[in-house]
């Protein structure tokens, strides 16, 4: 099996704050890894290191056999990695000055020099796939939160990524819109997309994840199949966290 992500002994600091401690983690092609943990535990920082939005201080990181180096980040690899890794953000981060369709067409045209007709066709296909084909010519601000996040997923997919990173994709959504976004992610997982997902949606993690990772204060303290982690956590910190989030 191909390893898409390989982290070894990775450390990350924000000033004096040690946010990631000796992270060893690899993700296989086609695998869905869900990362859970309390806020401030370092789970978002972890996936932001994968596409170089955060630099790290020591250790090694390889993404799709492109090595990223500590600190500087290795600009050549970084450009390659970002072409192959899509990311979905908590706040959507759609481009408000472009229509939904143009949001999706921008990267293929700028980065891959895709002709406009091709980029246009791709955008329409992806919008239909995430169920909002009829909204193509609207501006993001005219869409609901759930629709915006689905556009953001389509925008990332337009680059035909080998890996998708999801950074709390449903945390900014009204409860009634969470389902439609999770549905799209579930579909992606079913089609074999490699995914790293930071989320508080434990139901989704249990159902879709191949592997669940629990992070506490920058360390991976528990890792395993969802059934094992959720029903039979070994570490007492995991037990405490799960009893807090699953109690209600």
């Amino acid at each position: 099996m191909t390893q898409i992500v390989k982290m070894q002994g990775m450390n990350k600091f924000f000033g004096k704050l040690h946010v990631l401690k000796d992270i060893n983690l690899s993700v296989e092609q086609g695998e869905v890894v869900v990362i859970i943990g309390a806020s401030g535990s370092g789970k978002s920082t972890l996936i932001r290191c994968v596409n170089g939005l955060e630099a790290f201080e020591s250790g090694t990181l390889e993404v799709d056999s492109h090595p990223l180096e500590p600190k500087s980040g290795n600009p050549g690899s970084l450009a390659e990695i970002r072409k192959e890794v899509g990311m979905v953000f908590q706040q959507f981060n759609l481009f408000p000055h472009l229509t939904v369709k143009k949001n999706i067409m921008l990267a293929p045209m700028k980065v891959k020099n895709a002709p406009q007709v091709i980029a246009n066709a791709t955008a329409e296909r992806l919008l239909n796939r995430v169920g909002i084909g009829s909204q193509a010519d609207k501006y993001p601000s005219h869409l609901s939160g759930g629709q915006q996040q689905r556009v953001a997923i389509a925008r990332a997919l337009a680059m035909e990524p080998r890996l998708m990173l999801f950074d709390e994709p449903t945390s900014a959504l009204d409860p009634e819109m969470i389902g439609e976004v999770l549905d799209v992610m579930r579909e992606l997982a079913k089609e074999g997309m490699t995914m790293m997902v930071v989320t508080h949606e434990m139901g989704f993690a249990r159902e879709v994840a191949d592997r669940v990772i629990y992070i506490h204060e920058g360390q991976i303290v528990e890792e395993g199949k969802p059934a094992d982690v959720f029903d039979n956590p070994q570490n007492e910190r995991t037990q405490a966290f799960l009893s807090r989030v699953l109690a209600h």
Binding site: L53, R82, Q91, N93, F95, A107, V111
Partner: peptide, 14 residues
């Protein structure tokens, strides 16, 4: 917003 830059970079734009 900083998220705009992050979105652009994450899509592979320079």
């Amino acid at each position: 917003d900083k998220g705009q830059t992050e979105a652009g970079l994450s899509l592979g734009l320079s």
